[in-house]
Design a protein around this nucleic acid. Sequence first.
DNA 1: TAGATATTTAGACAGTTTTCTAAATATCTA
DNA 2: TAGATATTTAGAAAACTGTCTAAATATCTA
Lengths: 96, 96
Amino acid sequence: MNETFKALADPTRRHIIRLLKEKDMTAGEIADHFNMTKPSISHHLSTLKQAKLILDERQGQNIVYSLNTTVVQDVLGWFLEIIDGKDPGKGKEEDE
Amino acid sequence: MNETFKALADPTRRHIIRLLKEKDMTAGEIADHFNMTKPSISHHLSTLKQAKLILDERQGQNIVYSLNTTVVQDVLGWFLEIIDGKDPGKGKEEDE
DNA sequence: TAGATATTTAGACAGTTTTCTAAATATCTA
DNA sequence: TAGATATTTAGAAAACTGTCTAAATATCTA
């Protein structure tokens, strides 16, 4: 879980996730969305892949990346637990 | 949003959030849960506070920390949109 | 006001992260 | 097989992070 949260702590990587939410893309297509070198994007993809947030599959010359919604849901579960367990109706108690 | 995600990228800080989910606590009570110096915990609390994930209020000698569920819900919303953001007209473009 | 308690700030240091350029690997096509 | 295209790996520099000790600040109580 820590690897997943760390992977999500970078804006470029979150942007990649939002791109892959729309459709699967090759590494090159993803890189075209950023003002950054391809090796840098490749490194971000590697981080996301290691966190299992994305999946990769070679198709000829290209490598196609896709979102792994299972792991995204795991993180979602972490947040749901934080919210659900919290006593509702208890907000800021500032009375002045 | 970036500050929030970065704040969540550390296991100690996520642990603090889970502690505060149960009940409000003073800085010292929080520190007692970790094998780490109080200045280090204070620094983590400062990071969480800057990300608005927690709120602080002085009560005499103590400073009582509490969870800011509003911001936790904002992050939850980010994930919900990734998973089932089927609303085509409302795609979020930026998260920073 | 002095001393005790609670917490934060300051400064330092090792380890990690992000980014780059250059080079290597894999695949396709003529 | 040679050359072109797609992507990754390697190595290095700058910036950032997490942690510590020592010192400062804030509050309470006698």
